[in-house]
Nucleic acid binder design. Structure first.
Lengths: 222, 222, 222, 222
DNA sequence: TATGAATGAGGATTCATTCAT
DNA sequence: TATGAATGAATCCTCATTCAT
């Protein structure tokens, strides 16, 4: 009889069973997050359609609500997830040795390369710049995101402060300068999202990006 | 003198009457545009609610459609209106005399001051950066806006080219450098739109803005 | 001085003045009716747009309401106006001499020719057939129109009754037969309004129309 | 026997479950179609209100859109549904044996009886006559409907051609005559939709209908 | 009297969220 | 647990009618 037959033969311990189930659940969560990222980043928060997210994730619409409380929470999770990955790698890159200029260049290169390979991830930076578009994000969402942002600037500020200390860079407010650098880098990258802006560029984005960094560094040299 | 004009009565010429009506209509159009700007810029295109626009303008919902064909057209008009005013003043400021550095500073100061006094107007620059959000705008709209953008860069490029020619600035691609400068200025200003970004700044925006310009100029000096 | 100058020289009696004004008003009324007919007959009552009617009539929208109380009343007037003209001519044609068959043919030919030259007028017959489309006509409208319809059938019934009396036609209920004839004629004509129906016809409408009349007459001959 | 089936319990196979759900869905679809037919046929396409359709079907407004893409599609489905049923039965009736006259009478009787029992279904014939009212139907819709129309005429033309061949009917263009017959039958039936037309009739519709068919047949006899 | 600007009720459509199975 | 059908609030847009000038 069906009810007595072991569903399949392997003798699985109860703990094993639980673990598998948890893994499966985690995998589905990931799948949903990926689908959501694609849709959110393409259409923006308001215009994004959960029907499409569900379809891309290969689950029913109702299932989304078993993993995330609302559209807003799903969005937040997408942003947080992407940011976490980015931050870790940026830390690694920044912590190497060399002159401040070299390290700034290295981080910049990492930033650019990372963008080349993970354009979608960078939408998080767009999102924080443009929270006004979104308009109705639940309170608390941005706090989470802004933390990531602060940490990135902090990394740059650390390098710059060291450069100043070593007299490699001229005297300045390290954090402020880091903020400017970060702003410039982001702004240039975001240029790519606009057909108009792209059409106004007369050199490759990479060239423009590197030239901007060089300009910055030349401006900072003691 | 105005006071001697016929106080009132039937002696108003028909032309006068027509003029008054046209004025009134124009005034209402302005009122709608202002209300629309407020709502669009606060909530973004998608989330903006025409009901609120109508209410703020003190007119019925249907009235909006006597002045603008659709939500999209209303948005476009808001953007175009703002841009035109800005461009004219920027031209005036840039065309004065002085060293390239001075002129860059002057334009930058104009830019910043104009923003201080007309924050809303600057949304047009945001709009062009984020055309992807808007998406459904009628074709040809962005051409109009992107022209403004190009003209602004052109103004800066003209000054920079002159500076290079006079050996005030080091050799460089004037247009590319202008594009970077323009990008930086815009990005810093737009910082203000984000509570997150604002909270990360440790000096006033004005200080940050001026320091960024100085950094840029120092990087460019021969 | 302007106030004493006769607006224009002709010494017009007050009565003359009144008459002219009345004529002008009547002319405008006609113009509105014509514009309304065009629009109503093309789009149907529901879909017809008074903006377009006003524009075609060359008057302001508000003016329509000085001549007609509502959209519905305007529609009624259009129908009544067209019907009156048609009925008068049909009477004339029917009242000639000849055999019943000849007179039936004559009226049929008149009907067809009148349709050829005044297709729009015939919408009135469509309207009465399809009052359900319109749905919300004010009560009383159709009574007026149905009277015309009845009179047309009456004319045909008169001819047929005479034909029966003279043993030209076989015994039958004259009114009933007239109703059938009238229905057939209208239905064939209305065929033209439908692209589908038109495409199904394999001879000209005129041929089909005449053949149907012949079929009817052959069926009626004693 | 149904009564011996497991009363209920957890022993329902998944397939059974799926089937039930599909059935329920189908039932709801039918319910919506019925509600829609009622409203569309009473008020016409333009004036019909989907709020009322939803209410009559006992569902929320949004639910309509789970079953039909738009008001127009819902309308089309209503028409198509009705037409398909009719066509099948007409075929059956026409394919019996007997003289051409008998078969024409038989089809006519079927037509009339079918109308008596399914008045709403006949709106499809009205729809094709009045496609101009509808206007905004998605392309390709009318093709579907017009095909039905053509097939009905074809059936009649087949009978008539046979009658001519057997010298039961006089020489004529079978298709043209069929078209006339079809037009007459429809026009008479549609008479019922108009209170005006109904009030003008002095015999029952059935009598008028039969008399018209007789008149037609007498006109066709060799 | 004629105008045309203003009105606002009404209607189609979308989509985040709920919940019975 | 996963499903997906059902929901209904929300929103853009239309247009007959009114009314101040």
């Amino acid at each position: 009889m069906k009810t007595t037959a072991p569903p399949n033969g392997d003798s699985i311990s109860p703990g094993e069973n639980v673990r598998r189930r948890a893994e499966k659940k985690q995998a589905l969560r990931q799948k949903i997050l990926e689908a959501a990222r694609e849709v959110f980043f393409r259409d923006g928060f308001m215009a994004a359609n959960l029907d499409e997210v569900a379809q891309k994730a290969g689950v029913a619409k109702g299932t989304l609500y078993r993993y995330f409380e609302s559209k807003a929470e799903l969005y937040v999770e997408v942003l947080a997830h992407n940011g976490e990955i980015f931050k870790l790698r940026m830390y690694e890159t920044a912590s190497g040795s060399g002159s401040a200029s070299d390290r700034i260049r290295r981080v910049s290169t990492f930033y650019f390369d990372h963008w080349v390979r993970n354009r979608d991830y960078f939408q998080i930076f767009w999102a924080i710049e443009n929270q006004s578009v979104i308009g109705e994000l639940p309170p608390g969402v941005l706090g989470q995101v802004s933390e990531l942002w602060a940490e990135c600037i902090e990394i740059l500020a650390g390098i710059i402060a060291e450069g100043i200390e070593r007299n490699e860079f001229r005297e300045a407010d390290a954090w402020e300068v880091a903020n400017i650098l970060w702003t410039v880098a982001n702004a240039l990258i975001q240029t790519e999202k606009s057909a108009t802006r792209r059409s106004l560029r007369r050199v490759s984005l990479e060239t423009a990006f590197n030239d901007a960094i060089s300009l910055f560094l030349r401006g900072m040299l003691a």
